[in-house]
């Protein structure tokens, strides 16, 4: 029996390797200084989906992401690694969404493109670290959720149940849950398989509507334009708020109960530090000082 799986993935600024130029003088983020990447834990989620596809032939894996036109990159990356199709949920109406408005938009898109047996995403995205969208999508769809998943151990098609190992504070837990189900996967779960060379060949020219528009804007020429007619899978699908029948009052900034009141670059109390080198003399002096004031020993 085959399954229908959706993988939720997000394009995020790489906040892990932030240099000194990441912040502008006025305390706002210099996005241009941060490369956009596939949210790391979403790759772990994709791997869990692809393993089920290996195990249950005929299974389809659908990438679902939300963002600006360039976030079609996420769909392509998913296709390179074995996903079957994807949707980019993109609309100005979604801009400024907090986690609640984001999960509303994603839930409407899932209703429109589903039904799915499993909806799998990363535990959290590195730009917000909230871990809220997965559970909120589950609630909006009225589905059970299993968060902090380490591995999908077993899927019983007859009983329509999955067994999942998950991390809890100070330990591990194995749970059994019926599907349809929302699962969020930890970064410590199995890493995602690399790109498949054949799939890269197949999909490297796949483009979203806005990506194509960006190329042809100002009189640019879309290379291999005829390919997009003969090979429909190269046209990455985009969904607008209207396409998924979203209620605009629940989208974007308008649909976000939380508001950012203030943002500051943090400053810590700076101290007058005692500076020294790593020479034997200096290190010995430091150790003696710490011993004499009973900080150590």
């Amino acid at each position: 029996m085959s399954l229908k799986i959706a993988v939720l993935a997000k394009q995020v600024p790489d906040t892990r390797n932030v240099g000194k130029d990441a912040m502008k003088e006025d305390g706002t983020i210099n996005r241009a200084a941060l490369p956009a990447i596939f949210n790391p834990e979403d790759l772990n989620a994709l791997e869990q989906a692809l393993r089920l596809k290996d195990q249950f032939p005929g299974t389809t894996v659908t990438m679902l992401t939300m963002g600006p036109g360039r976030a079609a990159e996420i769909i392509r990356e998913g296709l390179y690694r074995g996903a079957d199709e994807g949707y980019l949920l993109t609309d100005r109406a979604f801009a400024g969404a907090d986690t609640l408005a984001t999960s509303y938009a994603i839930a409407t898109a899932i209703r429109k493109t589903g039904p799915f047996d499993l909806i799998i995403g990363g535990r959290q995205a590195i730009d917000g670290d909230t871990a809220q969208v997965g559970p909120q999508v589950a609630e909006k769809l009225g589905l059970p959720q299993v968060t902090y998943a380490e591995e999908i151990l077993n899927l019983d098609e007859n009983a329509r149940k999955v067994t999942i190992e998950r991390h809890i504070d100070g330990g591990v837990e194995t749970v059994e849950a019926p599907y349809p189900l929302v699962v969020t996967v930890n970064g410590s779960a199995a890493p995602c398989r690399p790109r498949n060379a054949k799939l890269v060949q197949k999909y490297k020219r796949a483009l979203g509507v806005q990506e194509k528009a960006a190329i042809t804007k100002d009189g640019g020429v879309l290379p291999y334009a005829d390919l997009y007619e003969t090979r429909p899978y190269l046209n990455l699908k985009e969904l607008s708020a209207a396409d998924v029948d979203a209620d605009f009052s629940q989208c974007g900034l308008a649909g976000s109960p939380t508001k950012v009141k203030a943002v500051i670059s943090i400053s810590f109390q700076t101290k007058d530090s005692k500076r020294m080198t790593g020479s034997d003399n200096d290190v010995e002096g430091l150790v003696v000082e710490l011993l004499s004031n009973h900080t150590i020993g």
């Binding site: 810590f268 109390q269 700076t270 101290k271 530090s273 005692k274 500076r275 020294m276 080198t277 790593g278 020479s279 034997d280 200096d282 290190v283 010995e284 430091l286 150790v287 003696v288 011993l291 150590i296 020993g297």
Partner: peptide, 28 residues
Amino acid sequence: INTIADYVVVGKVEDVVPKMIKYYKAHS
């Protein structure tokens, strides 16, 4: 991190830490 540190040792970790161990053993 140096701005909030009481002591700043400018050096390689792999040099400084063994020295700290050595002098701690010697003086404690």
